[in-house]
Nucleic acid binder design. Structure first.
Lengths: 353, 353
DNA sequence: ATGAAAGCGCTAACAG
DNA sequence: CTGTTAGCGCTTTCAT
């Protein structure tokens, strides 16, 4: 009564069925399905027709067992930024389903010590054909090294650079930060506060660099006091914003390294009776749902996360040598296009600037 | 050079290794591992020791192939509310890893017509041992029926009620809505606007019912005009809030059926120069990240999503007859405890109420 | 309560 | 370019 599988209906079509239908051996069918070279194109076509006619779907378990491959890819995640994760999921899921692989989300316990991370990483060995690594995991040298040592194909989203069987796909954080800072400067701002992100992440430095270079390019002095620490969290943004807004003279704009911290600036400004953008302009980074759910809507930078994830899947499958991934970008580093999103949180500074 | 699996190291320990180590037949080991009955407890112990000694991990592919089971559970999702999905993922992932199953996220294209949904559902047949269904998918009668007809074990998070091989796990939306409305009334509010959620979702009606009953319980008149349409989206909240705040006399409080719409109320209030909570109190529902990233922080209802997901996994595995799920709640409907989170978006109404 | 044999659906390794 | 033979690691079924 209990137990036993539940989901099945019509008897499954197998490789041998296709073989019989096409008048070839099972092995030939296997070759066609796996896109191997040595098959006469006429045979190939015939097989493909049979596959379609019978609506054959390979059995992943059998494939994995016989071929000693997993047909599985892991999407690692540590600090689960809901938005980031879900955007990646959308893109990755969509893409991977086209390649007959499975995507599993793997939580990697991100404890204080990097050693612990490695522990939880070791359970990946033998379980997956490859992994895709978003930040902040992609910023850990230990993660990169572990993957490299164990020859696990990986694609990093942002973070550390690829090498060996690794790839990296990201946006140009530096250019984006520079561009959005340029925008503030062109609006007339001269005292622009900057809230840094988590110091362990690569993008944090890039964004700061972009900010600095924008100032320099416009001949504005760089004031170290305008740079305050942040951790990409809302709470850290609260603290940073308070510090910035307590300065005299007050900055007329704040560049927060992500939207959460930018939202915190809005909250602090509101609580101090400052009108945004009239008295203070605020920009964020990411274009998370938060950016459009605060008042006023944030000016921010949008990363094409879903496309990045899809690209990561392609690179990974290519790296694995699996699937006939066609348009896969072979380069170790791929930079995607970002976009500045203009919100209502920015305007020219008050006249008495 | 190319191709081939990457992730493997030490030769894998298999069932037969354990059998040899324990001095029994492979079959006996299999029985022990699967928690079957007919094994002498002394033998069982010996086997378990060998399993531990050799650090044996069953090969899922082999298991699935031989046993004609999937050892996989799908987490369906349609409208990807980042927060909701990621909370569920956390809870479900954690729990399922303890049971040697896999959790796959399956996108179900939620097109206009329910028929289309069914199409995309049919690809689940034979692929999974069971599914967990969050809203809004759990509100579709067609989804429920499809699952029932195909005898696919399923656990619904909120939405429709379970029956047959289905279960439902949720919070008491009615009670939560009533309680938070009570809170507003006790604060002194008498004109409380209500923004409804998506009319297709079960919880929408429950929340409205809670609101109404709270009014009735306090002897307050129910004013139909104070009820406005919403869709659970930020934009729909914007529209609803504008409508509500244009009324004369203005409501002194708004109960939005979720946080996104509550955040929209905040934005509209701000743009109209109303101070929250001084001039207007606002409450939401969900305690999403948004709730604590807007100013002022929202008073809202927190659902234990991760625990609900973990519970769903347990129920599901129990339903499947898989794993020796111990504390699994067998009942068709499980209600979890919600919690009212007090934020800074609520206070007594202005004196001139 | 335990074991032996057979085979799940597929691919590796080797023919031809 | 195509086919044959094994066998992946496990569970089924049937003995004992």
């Amino acid at each position: 009564m209990a137990g036993r599988s539940a989901l099945q209906k019509e008897k499954t079509v197998k490789l041998s069925d296709v073989a019989r239908h096409a008048g070839v051996s099972p092995m030939t069918v296997s070759r066609v399905i796996n896109g191997e070279a040595n098959v006469r194109s006429s045979t190939k076509e015939r097989v493909l027709e049979s596959v379609a006619a019978l609506n054959y779907k390979p059995n992943l378990s059998a494939r994995a067992l016989a071929g000693n491959r997993a047909y599985k890819v892991a999407l690692l995640y540590g600090n689960p930024s809901a938005f980031y994760l879900s955007e990646l999921l959308v893109g990755a899921l969509e893409e991977i389903s086209r390649h007959g692989h499975q995507l599993l989300v793997q939580k990697v316990s991100e404890s204080a010590s990097e050693e612990k991370v490695e522990d939880s990483l070791s359970s990946l060995i033998g379980e997956y054909d490859g992994v895709i690594v978003p930040p902040p995991l992609s910023d850990y040298a230990s993660v990169r090294d572990f993957l490299l040592e164990n020859d696990i194909p990986a694609v990093f989203l942002s973070g550390l650079s690829g090498s060996g069987r690794n790839r990296k796909i990201c946006i140009d954080d530096y250019a984006a930060a520079k561009e959005i800072t340029d925008y503030l400067i062109e609006l007339g701002h001269e005292r622009i506060g900057f809230i840094k992100g988590n110091p362990n992440q690569f993008s944090t430095g890039e964004r700061l660099r972009g900010y600095k270079d924008a100032l320099a390019a416009h001949g504005l002095a760089f004031d170290k006091k305008l740079i305050v620490r942040g951790l990409f969290t809302y709470d850290s943004g609260l603290k940073a914003a308070r510090k910035l807004l307590a300065m005299a003279p007050r900055p007329t704009a704040i560049f927060a390294s992500n939207d959460d911290m930018a939202a915190a600036c809005l909250a602090v400004a509101a609580s101090e009776g400052l009108k945004v953008p009239t008295n203070l302009s605020v920009v964020g980074f990411d274009d998370s749902p938060l950016a459009s759910a605060v008042f006023p809507r944030l000016t921010t930078v949008k990363q094409p996360l879903a496309e990045m994830a899809a690209g990561a899947i392609n690179s990974l499958l290519d790296l694995i040598g699996s699937a006939q991934v066609v348009g896969a970008n072979q380069s170790e580093l791929v930079k995607m296009k970002y976009k500045i999103v203009l919100g209502a949180s920015t305007s020219a500074p008050p006249a008495s600037s």
